[in-house]
Every structure is written in structure tokens, then in C-alpha cells.
Design a protein around this nucleic acid. Structure first.
Length: 476
RNA sequence: GGCCUGUUGGUGAAGUGGUUUAACACGUCGCCCUCUCAAGGCGAUAUUCACGGGUUCGAAACCCGUACAGGUCACCA
């Protein structure tokens, strides 16, 4: 049997990392078994549709190196892969269910439903459709339809007994049938509900394994009843634990940090995000942490999916990201980081070598791309100010001799290179007999105003001879 | 409220009855390296697995109960 999994987002133009993580799991399960990964767009709610959202989903998956075997923009024999284009299919199946007495027409209007809801809340009972229209005769139904009355089609649920199924992660799940509502299959606009379309499509598209959040754990019997009614075999269910925000709540749009695109825009590498996400709720057999996509495919195993929810921790993501950044080759890293600088600074007056050198120094410092801006600030900021701790240092130590000696050495430098600057420092060391802090700090403070920063010679090189000299000459 | 699920440190987690006085990683702290900041190296960081009972020679692991947390009960997906 060929394993077929599917990622079925609704096109909202937003993807939080919980969704992405599901997609990753689905992709890995398929690929680790030489199976197919299908993308299906669940857009049966017309009001929530967002323009360009399908492209957005494609972009996201592509960035994450997740390749789609079948989908709206890919060929496949089970299309169309956009639900709104399959309306007729769902309707035919819904009608079939009515014919076979597994579903029925319902003409109850919003007003009556609202009333039922009110009564339910008053009695402190959960609202459940009362099956009012189930009793309608064939003739009555025909009559109402002829009169143009709006209707929905509802699934007929068993009233007694229990439904049981096996989930690959959570094991045996049993639900009382009496809590199952006669849910709507076909809405009055003629489109199916998510629950219905899902079943139809998963079957028609030959999906073998369904991976989804565990919020569906107690809803799955409804699906199974549908499969049963059609005489179809239900897929293998793999419910995965949720990813929670730091506040312990479900991830939502409000959690800005948890949006894939936002992270990407801030300079988190998709490889790092994928790597981090896959370890949220799944663990490998050994202690390996850094995984390429191929390694993930090789190692992924649903039996290692955890039951308990995990909370999203950006600190660990940053560690992964820093890891991937460090591994980039110089040119790639330069191209990665450049846009963030360009966004904030006018780089036209700087030459490429200078920027490359600058950026290189901070390769070990940044844990996400955008951070380069903050880190390199002192090289772009014209404002020169000596920090408080630096002032204290200057007051507590005699620094004039070092500064003056160094200034003279710098004046003699013909070619402004890091080597020559280092030479100037060591000459100053010889002449003044100062070393360590008392040698470096005066120069550092006088030229940068700070007591921290990258290697002195590098720093001075980047600041440039003119500015360095000017600062050395200036009085405090 | 009914039902479903979960509960190992600040975080991700390993662990499936006995080399567990709980691995590994992030974070945090300390030390080393170092002019400083990072990086890197080394070390510390759960007398104990939500709690209470039980089963057992032996439990984080099995069973029951309690507590807490989350989910779910739409013409949303």
C-alpha cells in the first residue's frame, strides 16, 4: 500500500507554527515510506477566503523544502484539489446519504435554532439539534424544496451505544454516541461543512493516514460514522499534541512570534524552524538534534510522537537558528544578512568588502538575521558617546600615554589593514609597557566609546582611519 | 456543565517494572579562554517524576481516585 498523507489548510493567508508542524509530520510520514504528500485547500467557508492565500501556502511549503506531489498547482489524478471546485461531488454524496437514510433534510431556520440554544443555556445543558426535521416525510420534504425553502442536510447519528476507534498516538478512544449531534453535512449555500468535505476528499483522494491536532480526538467518531455509512474504510488516525504558546494557551494569530512568515521575515531560517518544530512533540531514537530534511525522512517514526502538549520556546529556536547561521558559507551568509542592513541603512557609500568584513565579525553573535542591525549599530551611528562604565574606567586609570602612543603609531600606517593595526597595537604595547586591559581598553573606549565590541583591530579597521584618528585626537 | 485528552526541572524531552541516587539539549548560573562582547571548553542546576491510595520483593513506569491544565460541544475550519 502506498502511503498518502495530506495537508489541508484553509486559505487564510496566515500559518502558525502549529499548522506547519502538522504539515511537516504529514510530509515526513509520507516520504519516510516512499509515499505521496498531497495539498488540499479547504475553502468551503467563502467568507474567510483571502486573496493570494494559496500562493502563500505554496511559498511557505517551498521555503520549508516540503515538496508537494499533488495539489492545486501540481498534477494529480484526484483533483481538483480546491474544495470550492468540488461542490457538486459533495452534494451528490450528501444526497446519497439521504437516500440511504443516513442523513436527512433540515429546514429549521436560524430563529428556531437560536431558540433551542437559549433553552439549552437556560437549562445549563449543551446545545444539540433536536432532530426536529428527521420526522419529515418524503412528500413534505419535496413540497418544501419545491417552495424554495432553504435547507441543510444533517447526518443521522445513533442515539445509543458507544463508538470506539484506535488512534496511533493516543490509543483506544471511546465516545458515547449520545453526545454526537446530527451535524450539518451540507450548508444552505450548497457547500459542505469541513467535517463532511474532509471525509469525502480523504476517501476520494485515497488518503491513508490522517495527521491532525488532538482537538479532533473526540470528534473522530463522527467521521467514522460517515465512513461506515458509505461503506468506506476509515484512514489511520494520528492525532498529535498541540503546540502551546508561552502563556500555556493554544497558538493563535495573537501569538505574533508563532507565525512562520513573521519568523522568516525576522531572519529565522526555514531549515532551523523545521528542525525545531519537528522536535516539538516528536523525538528521535538517539540524541541527535540537528537534522537535515533527508535525515528527518530517514528517522521519522510516528511511534515516537508524544501525547502531551509542548510549549513553543523561541530561545531554543534561536539556538537552532544560530547553529544554522554558523554553518552557512560566507557568501550565503552575506546575502542572507544584507537585506536587513539595507532596510535600515543606506549602504551605497560603503564598499562590499567593508560590509562583508563587518557582517562576518558578527556571524557568531546573531541568532536571527534581523539582529545584525542592532549588533552593528556602532558602525553606522555617527553619534559618538562614551558610556558610563567607560568614563569610570578612564577616570580610574591613567590612559593618556597609551592613547597618544597609539595615535602616533596609527598616523604612521600607510595601508589601513587589520594586520597593520595589530602591528600598531603591539608597538604601543612595547613602548608603553602596558598590556591587557590597560593597553586595549583606553584605545577601545576612545575610539568606540564602549567597553564591549568585537576584536579591537577589526573594530578599528571598520571604523576607518579618519574617524579613528579624529576620535583619538578629540578631548573627552 | 457533559465528554475526550494530558500531567517527568524554567523549556524541549529520554524513560515502557530492577545498571534511574531520572539521559540528552535549550535556558540560567559559575569557572576557563580572552582587552571586552560573542563563540568555544568545563562544571552546576528535579533527594525525584501533580497529589493520595493500591498492585509488587521492587514503580516515574501498572491500576484506582483526586487535583490541575488543555481540547470539544457552530450552516468555522
Amino acid at each position: 500500500m502506498i502511503i498518502r498523507t495530506r495537508f489541508a489548510p484553509s486559505p487564510t493567508g496566515f500559518m502558525h507554527i502549529g499548522n506547519l508542524r502538522t504539515a511537516i509530520f504529514e510530509y515526513l510520514l509520507a516520504k519516510s515510506n516512499d509515499g505521496k504528500f498531497i495539498l488540499r485547500i479547504e475553502d468551503t467557508d467563502q467568507s474567510r477566503k483571502v486573496d493570494g492565500a494559496i500562493d502563500f501556502i505554496y511559498d511557505t511549503l517551498k521555503l520549508c523544502n516540503i515538496s508537494i506531489d499533488e495539489g492545486p498547482n501540481n498534477n494529480g489524478e484526484y483533483g481538483p484539489y480546491i474544495q470550492s471546485e468540488r461542490a457538486k461531488i459533495y452534494k451528490d454524496y450528501a444526497l446519497k446519504l439521504v437516500e440511504e437514510n443516513h442523513a436527512y433534510y433540515c429546514f429549521c431556520n436560524e430563529e428556531r435554532l437560536e431558540n433551542l440554544r437559549k433553552i439549552a443555556t437556560k437549562n445549563k445543558k449543551p446545545f444539540m439539534y433536536d432532530g426536529h426535521c428527521k420526522k419529515l416525510s418524503k412528500e413534505e420534504v419535496l413540497e418544501k424544496i419545491k417552495n424554495g425553502e432553504k435547507y441543510v442536510i444533517r447526518q443521522k447519528m445513533p442515539k445509543y451505544g458507544k463508538s470506539t476507534y484506535i488512534d496511533q498516538v493516543y490509543g483506544k478512544i471511546t465516545i458515547e454516541n449520545s453526545v454526537l449531534e446530527d451535524q450539518i453535512l451540507l450548508k444552505s449555500d450548497g457547500l459542505p461543512t469541513y467535517n463532511f468535505a474532509n471525509v469525502i476528499d480523504d476517501h476520494l483522494m485515497k488518503i491513508t493516514h490522517v495527521i491532525r491536532g488532538n482537538e479532533y480526538l473526540s470528534q473522530t467518531p463522527k467521521y467514522n460514522l460517515l465512513y461506515e455509512a458509505f461503506g468506506w474504510q476509515a484512514p489511520t488516525y494520528i492525532h498529535v499534541p498541540m503546540v502551546l504558546g508561552t502563556d500555556g494557551n493554544k497558538l493563535s494569530k495573537r501569538n505574533k512570534d508563532a507565525s512562520f512568515m513573521d519568523l522568516y521575515k525576522d531572519g529565522y531560517l526555514p531549515e532551523a524552524i523545521v528542525n525545531y518544530l519537528v522536535l516539538l512533540g516528536w523525538s528521535p531514537n538517539d540524541n541527535q538534534e540537528i537534522f537535515s530534511m533527508n535525515e528527518l525522512i530517514k528517522n521519522f517514526d510516528i511511534s515516537k510522537i508524544s501525547k502531551s502538549p509542548s510549549t513553543y520556546d523561541i530561545k531554543k529556536l534561536q539556538w537552532f537558528n544560530a547553529n544554522y547561521i554558523k554553518k552557512m558559507d560566507d557568501e550565503k551568509y552575506y546575502q542572507f544578512v544584507l537585506p536587513y542592513l539595507k532596510e535600515v541603512y543606506d549602504l551605497t557609500t560603503y564598499d562590499k568588502n567593508w560590509i562583508e568584513k563587518l557582517v562576518q565579525i558578527y556571524k557568531n553573535h546573531i541568532s536571527y538575521g534581523k539582529q545584525i542591525v542592532e549588533e552593528t549599530k556602532m558602525f553606522f551611528d555617527d553619534e559618538f558617546k562614551i558610556s558610563e562604565e567607560a568614563i569610570n574606567f578612564m577616570q580610574e586609570n591613567n590612559t593618556d600615554i597609551v592613547i597618544n602612543t597609539f595615535k602616533n603609531k596609527i598616523l604612521n600606517i600607510k595601508k589601513w589593514t587589520i594586520e597593520n593595526i595589530n602591528f600598531a597595537i603591539s608597538e604601543t604595547k612595547k613602548e608603553t609597557n602596558e598590556k591587557g586591559k590597560l593597553l586595549y581598553m583606553p584605545i577601545r573606549i576612545k575610539t568606540t566609546g564602549l567597553m564591549h565590541g568585537p576584536e579591537l583591530a577589526d573594530t578599528l579597521y571598520l571604523i576607518g582611519k579618519t574617524t579613528v584618528l579624529k576620535r583619538l585626537e578629540d578631548n573627552l
